[in-house]
Amino acid sequence: MNVDHTPRSPSNRPLKLAVLISGGGTTLTNFLEKRAAGELDIEVPLVIASRPDCGGVAKAKAAGLRCEVVRRRDFNDISEFSTTIFGLCREVGADLVTLAGYLSLIHIPEDYQHRVMNIHPALIPAFCGHGFYGHKVHEAVVARGVKISGCTVHFADNEYDHGPIIGQKTVPVSGTDTPDQVAANVFQAECELYPEMIRLFAAGKIKVVERRTIIQD
């Protein structure tokens, strides 16, 4: 039986984002730039970093954002780790949790089902899953010789790069492109696609039926 899920979203106020990072914080910076330009109506009450030496930690603090470091190795199991992360998200009243280059697997509790978004730097189901992250994705794209790559925004579930796909954006790949060139082109696509999908969520326009999403007018 198909079960319909409409992700909850706020009305008449900025969307509260929790942003989870593992690297340089470029996606976080993009969100903040879109907000400053009036293109993304958000608040960021919480940033969670997977390690203290993430470049994104300094960026979050420079922006005056609360930033907590939650390391997987400090917990006995993934359940305890995930409970801590979502406890922080509930504490700040996060409407949506965004994975922004976040590399640790988390288990999503019932109250955050279809309220956790991830962006992957390839066109899922290609070049995705455990071990496909960051520059490794673009190296694999170039090695395989594909002519189109891109990025995918999806709702996260308890597996890597597995939940319902919300949106995808393509970029061409030429036979002379290096992984660095592909990465730069894909990141430009990410900078447009991720905010666009967040806006759809905030407007209540994303409906999930089983593992498919429907974008409502």
Rank of each mutant, 00 (worst) to 15 (best):
Y160R: 04
P109I: 04
H130V: 15
A156D: 05
A143Y: 00
D161F: 12
M117P: 03
H138F: 04
D161N: 14
C151H: 03
P164V: 09
F155R: 00
C151D: 01
N118V: 06
V137N: 10
F132C: 02
D157H: 09
H154Q: 13
K147Y: 01
H135T: 15
N158C: 09
V153L: 01
H154W: 07
D161P: 15
G145C: 09
H154E: 03
I165C: 03
H138I: 09
P164K: 00
S104E: 13
G145V: 08
F127P: 02
G167D: 10
T152K: 01
A156G: 02
G145E: 05
C128R: 09
P109D: 11
H107I: 07
V142M: 01
A126F: 06
H154M: 05
F155V: 10
H154A: 00
A156Q: 08
E159I: 14
I106A: 01
C151R: 04
Q168F: 06
G134H: 09
R115S: 05
H114S: 00
G163T: 14
H120M: 08
E139P: 08
Q168T: 12
G150R: 03
G145S: 09
Q113K: 14
G150D: 08
I106K: 04
Y112K: 04
T152W: 03
Y112F: 15
V137Q: 08
H138A: 00
G129P: 14
H130D: 07
E110S: 01
G131M: 09
E110H: 03
T152C: 11
F127I: 15
V141I: 15
N118I: 06
G150I: 06
V142N: 08
H114I: 00
V153F: 04
V142C: 08
C151N: 09
H154G: 11
H138P: 02
H138E: 00
G129N: 07
G134I: 15
R144Q: 14
H120N: 05
G134C: 12
T152R: 00
S149V: 14
N158E: 05
V146C: 07
Q113A: 08
K169M: 15
D111E: 13
Q113V: 15
V137T: 05
A143R: 14
L105M: 13
H120C: 11
T152P: 03
L123T: 04
T152M: 03
V153K: 00
G167P: 04
Y133L: 12
Y160L: 10
M117E: 02
H107W: 11
K147N: 11
M117R: 05
H154I: 03
G163D: 02
V146T: 14
G134Y: 11
L105T: 10
A140S: 15
R144V: 13
F132N: 00
T170I: 13
P125C: 02
C151A: 11
C151L: 12
I165M: 09
